[in-house]
Nucleic acid binder design. Sequence first.
DNA 1: TTAGGGTTAG
Length: 631
Amino acid sequence: MRVILGSSSSAIVTAQTDRYDRRTESKPKHKPSSNHSVSKLSSSSSSSSTVSSSIPTVNTYQAPLLSAVPWDLTSDHRYCADLASKLAEDGRLQDFAMIVESVVVSGGNASKFVSMLCVELVSCGIVRSLREGRIECVVEVLEKVDKLGVAPLKLFDGCGMKLLRNECRRIVDSGEVEKFVDLAEVLAGFQFPIKELGNSSHIVQFCVDKRDANLAIRYACTVPHAHVLFCIIIREFGKKRDLMSALTAYEASRKYLSSPNMYICRTIIDTCGMCGDYMKSRFIYEDLLCQNITLNIYVFNSLMNVNAHDLKFTLEVSMVSWRIWTSYNILLKACCLAGRTDLAQEIYREVKHLESKGVLKLDVFTYSTIVKVFTDAKLWQMALKVKEDMQSADVTPNTITWSSLINACANAGLVEKALHLFEEMLQAGYAPNSQCCNILLQACVEACQYDRAFRLFWSWKQSPTQEISGEDYDGNYNRISSVDHKDKQCATDTPKFVLNSPHSSFVKSFPFKPTTTTYNILMKACGTDYYRVKALMDEMRTVGLSPNHISWSILIDTCGESGNIKGALQILKIMRADGVSPDVVAYTTAIKVCVKRKELKLAFSLFEEMKQYQIQANLVCAQDLLSVNDV
DNA sequence: TTAGGGTTAG
């Protein structure tokens, strides 16, 4: 038999006719006796089954007609509480909620009702409803009992909480994050541990992917560690280059949190830098100053770092803030960016002096930065001197330091020295990454040591892949694991390996992953041998790399230089068909080929074609065309 | 918190 419960149209229940008590069609003649032992809110001794069997007089199938009788539910708190408890136990949470609501509305003695309510039965009902996926009913009950002054959290035992967690996880996993946040807001109001109900980074990531700053903010406000989530939200929006959303989250955090949080301040400043809006970082800084907020050194450092390209500003900030060693490192970076080798050296001397007095300790960051300063200034001897300084100070160079030192020599055209450092790096147990290898290859090519570049490349390719401690395949911060190489084909075992050091037989090999740039450098090393260049481009594809516009430009150049103008022009077309639109360099290369071969008409037609594609000619292109007059 | 690096036309 199907019965609709009173005015609550949502409460549709199905009852078996044989269990339906016809006596309830009129005012209940039977009321529960007042002496049965119902476990109360304050009681925790009775199990739910015991409690359930202890109220035999209440038949919940009476409920369908409760609203139809002229009977004040709240007049008998005992009966009312027992019935409500039993309805809850049967999973009829909406009916339960209706009774609770009527208690609240009637203004009756709610505390008396509460004292007689069986919390274990209600808990059972909640568990049952959660198992049936009726979270909305549960929320309705929580809201109702809260009005009665019952803490909703008390209705959740371990099982209930576990089911709630599972339901929340299901909601989030099915992409209904907004629904989860709605729920989290309600539950947070009832002091539920929101952090345990969902994977916060997963939820934040979802909001960020959807570019929904407000949803992310609403979620952050439901957890006790809101400041941590605000940081994550700001940073994640920064990674998406969505500064507007990051700023929205920052402003929301300022309003929500009682005091400014330095982690958040630092994060928003870092994010401004990440998004390329350093001026915004200054506005934020000035705004904080205007409000007389005391900033810590980390905020100052972030501000200096984001504005490192502006040496004047960075120095000004460094004057008003405390300095710790990281501040000096950032100042060195600012000097480096400004090309102020003199000032960098002055700072380097100052920090070394402070170190000798025990005020601070130079770290690997300081040394690596100063190596870069000297590299940029082509002062390779000074860069190598830093390596000695490190040894004296007992600071171990890491992958970045080694790469920087190698670059210092490579930049100065010192192939031998660069290779020697490379070997030292391997012996020290550091694995070079692709860029480091490319630096060496480029150094060889610049020095016209083409064969050497190829021999290096082949030897790296042939070296057995080894386990590297850590996950980062790029080799950053990774040490080569101490594998016994005697039984392995070591890099030096290959006949074409070029290192001549007496120690080279002990050099460990490393996982080498060529990049498009690697192949481009090698293509340049082929000179005018078009077929060799072409073969390298094919190899590039076979190892899963795609030629970029630089690869194509080199191919055009080589083809043209070998005298095949038609072929060069054909490549320009193939390049476009391959999905790489020719840029000004590709066109200029082709134009140069035509000009050299006195194909002036072709050169100008290419120039016209370039304009049709709305590619802006630059000085190099113009010079090539102007050189027509010299032909 | 902070540090590094590669390729094309001229």
